[in-house]
Design a protein around this nucleic acid. Structure first.
Length: 294
DNA sequence: ATTAATGTTCAGAA
DNA sequence: TTTCTGAACATTAA
């Protein structure tokens, strides 16, 4: 399920293929299922995007952004099962959207031939939006979205935590709190930082926050290096439809009952917080230990 | 053959 | 105001 590392992997994967190419046409695909949410209308998007060049590909939180030469920008939100692919998709029935691109202007990969960029989404919860004329920066920036998890300092974490008394794991999933962390990486980060997921955010000590800040950077950057997590039942894959490798490095996520790799004594436990699975080690992550008492 | 579980975001309720 | 719940969806495991 695409969180920050998976989306970053998508961005890095498609970038060398699509940057600098002209958009010949765009549109939804013939698909066996209900169309995904596309705004504004598919026709309006086609009208504006056709014959633009894709100037750059970047990531905003959990969205893949294609910046166009006319100032507009596509924002693709994969949600649960969406993939951005530069190879043939796994099937046509879940193929939702296609960008047909012309030959590359420079001596990049596949420079002489045209190609397609695809959005493939099994469950169909993903969205595609076209933001006009630079408006993406207002729509997908503070205060509508928190600071990016790879750009925050310990001081930013402190400021965010001081604003809420929610459990830290719950707050981390709020994209207005810090942007980019999802259910899987929240458990991994808190385990590496030695913080109990139910610790009230506001009560965390400065020391705990420093650890959490460092753990966030380490977990997310390592996950990017491994090209994200492909779970057993998940469908996440990179731009070439290949599996990621970080699932083999998970310390607690989906490892209920296994021996904790940090302390080698606790057994990983699972419980539910606001309807989502949380995994943690009761020995390394003790409630109260990372909290201020006063 | 149903049913639960999966995780992201948003609208709406508490 | 802040926090939480249910719905959207397809697929698989139980």
């Amino acid at each position: 399920m695409p969180e920050l590392p998976e989306v970053e992997t998508m961005v890095r994967g498609i970038r060398p293929f699509v940057e600098g190419r002209e958009i010949l046409s765009v549109g939804r695909c013939r698909c066996a299922y209900r169309p995904i949410l596309i705004e504004p209308s598919a026709a309006a998007i086609t009208r504006r995007a056709k014959r633009c060049t894709i100037d750059s590909v970047r990531r905003i939180a959990k969205r893949v952004v294609l910046e166009l030469s006319n100032g507009d920008a596509f924002a693709v939100e994969p949600r649960m099962t969406g993939l951005m692919l530069v190879t043939d998709p796994p099937d046509r029935t879940h193929l939702r959207y296609e960008w047909k691109l012309g030959p590359a202007a420079t001596s990049r990969r596949n420079s002489t031939a045209g190609m397609s960029l695809y959005f493939w989404d099994r469950r169909g919860l993903g969205t595609i939006r076209l933001y006009r004329d630079g408006s993406i920066h207002q729509e997908l920036g503070p205060p509508k979205l928190g600071l990016d998890a790879l750009a925050v300092t310990a001081a930013d974490w402190r400021a965010a935590c001081d604003k809420t008394q929610r459990a830290i794991k719950v707050a981390m999933l709020d994209q207005k709190f810090i942007a980019g962390i999802g259910n899987l990486y929240a458990s991994e980060i808190l385990h590496l930082a030695g913080i109990h997921p139910e610790s009230p955010a506001r009560d965390l000590t400065d020391d705990a926050i420093a650890k959490m800040s460092a753990a966030t950077t380490r977990v997310l950057e390592t996950a990017i290096k491994y090209e994200g997590s492909t779970l057993g039942d998940g469908t996440y894959r990179n731009a070439l439809n290949q599996d990621g490798g970080y699932q083999n490095e998970h310390r607690v996520y989906a490892r209920e009952g296994e021996l904790c790799p940090t302390c080698n004594s606790g057994l990983v436990e699972r419980f539910v917080q606001t309807q989502r699975s949380t995994f943690f080690c009761p020995t390394c992550q003790r409630l109260g230990e990372s909290c201020r008492v006063d």
